[in-house]
């Protein structure tokens, strides 16, 4: 059977689109009983890319979750894309490096998973890290409305992981 070129192209486009939406967690990610996101593998090539820079699992650096709102107290995290900034060097990634991710606010704690780093000067690399803040710094204030999570402040740390758990 012959498949015409345009049909093939459309199929590939569809495949890529569905893979992308999965990767960004709009669907397809299992949810845990508290509403937080479940297992998700690291973005393809991220561990290798970070390893080449000498960044390994369990490395960490402090971040500002949203530099445009860094003085908001308390701080609101919204479901969806997040662009945070390193306020400390992470291996060769200097303070000021942007890290792109996605936030989920359905759980007890706000979850932020980062999939890309953009260093000053335009170097972009796939990335695999999560936001953490000790002593309940990511714990949602009870009664946060759906779609957002209110936490004490916009400071946290990003930790390199080998999978999103």
């Amino acid at each position: 059977m012959q498949i015409s070129k345009p049909v093939k192209k459309a199929c590939i486009t569809l495949l890529v689109l569905s893979a992308t939406s999965l990767g960004f967690g709009c669907s397809g990610i299992p949810t845990r009983p508290d509403g937080s996101p479940g297992y998700q593998p690291c973005p393809a090539g991220s561990l290798e890319a970070m390893q080449r820079l000498g960044i390994t699992v369990a490395d960490a650096a402090s971040i500002t979750i949203d530099p445009r709102r860094e003085n908001d107290f308390p701080f609101t995290v919204y479901d969806g894309p997040v662009e945070s900034v390193l306020t400390q060097d992470l291996g060769p990634l200097p303070a000021g490096t942007r890290i792109l991710g996605r936030a989920w606010t359905g759980g007890l704690d706000v979850a932020i998973r980062y999939h890309e780093a953009r260093a000053p000067g335009g170097i972009t690399l796939p990335f695999c890290g999560v936001a953490r803040d000790a002593y309940g710094g990511m714990t949602k204030r009870p009664g946060s409305p759906p779609g957002l999570g209110i936490i004490p402040d916009g400071g946290a740390s990003v930790w390199i992981v080998d999978a999103f758990r």
């Binding site: 845990r32 479940g38 297992y39 369990a58 007890l108 704690d109 953490r132 309940g136």
Partner: peptide, 20 residues
């Protein structure tokens, strides 16, 4: 669970964890 370091009490949902 590293992500919930220092929480007391600690609320753990069923699922995967990373400790150290």
């Amino acid at each position: 669970e590293t992500s919930k370091f220092g929480q007391k009490p600690l609320a753990l949902p069923d699922g995967l964890i990373e400790g150290y």
